[in-house]
């Protein structure tokens, strides 16, 4: 089961890379809902630069990291817009996966570790079994085949109550 989860994650990641790396070039370049609301009262030219009037967006200041090599979803020094946007998207997806996935991986409950008192006490929503009270068998040295067998039998008993 765990291997199949990683397989799914791999496929999903490929989809994300495709979206950020290629499809992103066909995204609308109009200001989004927030920006356009803040531009209300101003006149703008074809490049969405303010040409007159008065609006909240005029107070906007430079980003702290406007000189970042990846600022504004492009890569500094890459001339082709297509490549610049696409590559920055690819970097962003991989970076987000690494940062997010890494943090979540470190935060996770280590159920199969086999130490009894790892019970994650608070069921967050009360709608799923969260008992992680350690395996009843205690003998699964790195067995990847089927995490479901790791689940204590209590889980099954609690299942159909919802």
């Amino acid at each position: 089961m765990r291997k199949r989860t990683w397989g799914f994650v791999g496929v999903g990641l490929l989809a994300a890379l495709l979206l950020a790396g290629v499809v992103s070039n066909y995204a609308s370049s109009h200001p989004d809902g927030l920006d356009s609301s803040l531009l209300k009262g101003c006149t703008v030219n074809a490049d969405h630069e303010i040409t007159g009037g008065s609006c909240p967006a005029q107070q906007a200041r430079e980003h702290e990291l406007a000189d970042s090599p990846l600022a504004d979803y492009g890569i500094k020094g890459v001339d082709s817009d297509f490549l610049s946007t696409g590559l920055s998207g690819v970097v962003g997806v991989l970076l987000t996966f690494a940062v997010g996935g890494g943090a979540f991986w470190l935060l996770r409950r280590r159920t199969p570790a086999g130490d009894g008192p790892t019970t994650a006490a608070g069921p967050t929503t009360g709608d799923r079994p969260t008992t992680a009270a350690g395996p009843t068998t205690g003998d699964e040295p790195g067995n990847d085949r089927d995490t479901d067998t790791d689940r204590p039998a209590v889980d099954a008993g609690r299942g159909p109550t919802g």
Binding site: M1, R2, T5, W6, F8, V9, G12, L13, A15, A16, L17, L19, A20, S24, A27, Y73, G89, G92, V93, L94, T96, F97, A98, V99, G100, G101, G102, F104, W105, L107, R108, R109, T111, P112, A120, A121, G122, P123, T124, T130, A132, T147
Partner: peptide, 24 residues
């Protein structure tokens, strides 16, 4: 922490990466 296990953690990384992609 109560939700994150070996299955949800990689899935959560994927969800974050996917949201980044689609936000573009």
């Amino acid at each position: 922490r109560a939700d994150l296990d070996d299955r949800l953690a990689p899935m959560a990384g994927l969800v974050a990466a996917f949201i980044f992609a689609v936000q573009m």
